[in-house]
Amino acid sequence: MVRTYTLLAWTWLRAGAQYPLSMALLTIGTFVVSALDLIAIWIIFEHTGTLGGFTLPEVMFLYGTAMVSFSLADLLFGNVDKLSAHVRAGTFDSMLIRPVSPFVQMAVDRFAVQRLGKLVQAVVVLVIALPQLDVPSSRVWMVPVMVFCGTVIFTAVFTLGGALQFLLTDAPEVANAFTYGGSALTQYPLSVYGTDLVRGVTFVLPLAFVNWQPGLFVLGHEDPFGLPYWLRFAAPLAALLLGAISALAWRAGLRRYRSTGS
């Protein structure tokens, strides 16, 4: 599976490398578009010292971890949310006649190096934010754990978005509300949002475990919503559960697949 993925990704990279200038411009473009979110944070902190009880380096830390996870998931699997376009064009049928999982084929289709622009941007933010926070070594181990679990959670969200498109072939934009909406949500400390929304992203669609709950542990911050302390270590559990649910949803969607035409 990994071998097939790597092989297909490499082939797409070579195909893209035929237009090096275009590829470079697109990478820079992705870098700048994702930097806009960061500029928004910077402008907000021009007017205030704290947002929702968090300082600029703390918000940058939350932003950086969430965006590293999101851009890794997007780079590796984000393309599964293009499912409806493939269904309508009939190219999904072509994937089904190959002896390789259609999920892998979807994920890697048009594997594009320009999505690295977003990842680089996120890593830079994290590298700037971390030294300013003086995180003790007894807590810093959580950072790679949360980035990994966050990547799994976002991958699961992309997969759910793809699975949803087996049903809503005409309205793929609905998936964006969850994928890109999830990305927008986790860029800020959840303390700015309403209690109901936070309960929803903790217990229903567990985006709070991408960076918020483990981030509270790393930053040594009180939970403004007073949820149990052990939730800070529950990211692997949330990732596992959501991953399993999304895999089931994808399978169910594939079984219901109706192809195009008659």
């Binding site: 907000i44 007017h47 205030t48 704290t50 947002l51 929702g52 809503l168 005409d170 309205a171 793929p172 934009e173 609905v174 964006n176 509300a177 890109y180 909406g181 927008a184 949500l185 800020y188 700015v192 949002y193 309403g194 929304l197």
Partner: peptide, 29 residues
């Protein structure tokens, strides 16, 4: 129409998320 309804849904979700951030800023300032 289906695409437009989906777009309206996404716009609403983003509107709610961004509203909270602006509320936090305007409560501070």
């Amino acid at each position: 129409r289906a695409a437009a309804i989906a777009g309206a849904f996404t716009n609403t979700v983003f509107g709610i998320l961004r509203a909270y951030i602006l509320i936090a800023l305007w409560e501070a300032r």
